[in-house]
């Protein structure tokens, strides 16, 4: 517990200035550019990286080149010799910094709303053979977002013209025209509950394919911006977990500069490299999506599974390194 406390304080001491800098940068750039855009990603990365660096520099068993390494190894219990407490301290410090950043960023994030993908009934294609397509909704709708895939035209190119109806009532005065793939059409609705959306191909030669996210319904209910922002920023702890677990696994074989390079690389791959849930969570938050409805759980679980693998490897390497 003392290791946890000491690591927490040390990591907080490193991460707090980074958090202050990040908060200032987010506020300034959001004011200047009228959008939180990619700045939230950079602002979240800085304190996380600082905290992970602090943990690896603080606890001697994260690297092979510390003077106190052998002494600490003898004085602490197996299997991790305090590494897990140090990592946990770092994660708690990071969590605290992320919450502070959430408070600073929340006023600049669009109000989150739940986005639900509407499920097509039957073959999800509008073409000459199937001119009508229905979607099961069963929820209140503020707007309907259509973004189908336009396939190769049958015969001479003529944009697909589509009529849209909600529960049998037309919601478009004139048919909507689709002539490009993933062309976005936003249909404002009055927030009433809709059971079914019906699309009817009026004319045109371009077949439209409505895949999983081609028809999205936006809820009229707004959620808390602060909560949405906090959830997105706390997802940043997932890459930090994996990076620290990797550092634990390689602690017996690598010196501190190598360890820190590994941690940085692991964080970059999982954030800027999009190999994990963090980048998607922050992007969705910046676009005004409500995270619990976005299906990020599989991605988070996969990252945590990788983390568990690294922790297992850490146990094995520590065991092998016993004299």
């Amino acid at each position: 517990m003392r290791t946890f406390h000491a690591a927490f304080v040390r990591c907080l001491a490193w991460a707090l200035p980074a958090t202050a800098l990040s908060c200032a940068a987010v506020v300034a750039t959001s004011f200047a550019t009228h959008s939180i855009g990619p700045w939230l990603h950079a602002a979240a990365f800085l304190p996380i990286a600082a905290s992970c660096f602090a943990a690896t520099a603080f606890w001697p068993l994260f690297a092979t080149d510390g003077d106190a390494r052998e002494w600490v190894r003898r004085a602490t219990r197996r299997p991790f010799h305090g590494l897990h407490h140090a990592a946990l301290g770092s994660l708690c410090a990071s969590a605290l910094c992320m919450l502070a950043l959430a408070i600073a960023a929340a006023p600049f994030v669009p109000t989150p709303r739940a986005h639900h993908a509407a499920q097509p009934i039957g073959r999800p294609i509008l073409d000459d053979a199937q001119t009508q397509l229905s979607f099961e909704v069963g929820a209140a709708c503020k707007e309907l977002r259509l973004r189908p895939i336009a396939m190769l035209p049958h015969g001479e190119l003529a944009p697909a013209r589509v009529d849209v109806a909600a529960d049998g009532t037309r919601i478009t005065n004139e048919p909507i025209s689709f002539d490009g793939t993933r062309q976005l059409v936003v249909l404002p609705l009055d927030g009433r509950r809709v059971q079914r959306i019906e699309l009817r191909l009026v004319r045109g030669t371009i077949p439209l394919l409505f895949d999983q996210h081609a028809a999205v319904v936006v809820s009229p209910d707004t959620e808390s911006s602060l909560l949405g922002c906090a959830m997105a920023l706390l997802v940043m702890l997932v890459p930090a977990c994996a990076a620290l677990a990797l550092a634990m696994a390689t602690g017996a074989i690598a010196a501190l500069p190598v360890q820190q390079a590994l941690v940085l690389t692991a964080l970059l791959v999982q954030t800027a490299g999009q190999a994990g849930p963090a980048d998607a969570a922050l992007t969705l938050c910046a676009r005004g999506h409500w995270l619990p409805t976005e299906g990020l759980l599989p991605s988070i679980s996969a990252s945590l599974l990788v983390t568990a693998g690294f922790v297992l490897a850490a146990m094995l390497t520590k065991k092998a390194a016993q004299p």
């Binding site: 062309q183 936003v186 249909l187």
Partner: peptide, 9 residues
Amino acid sequence: LLGGATVLD
């Protein structure tokens, strides 16, 4: 030219 995604009057 193509940014008018929202269907408006």
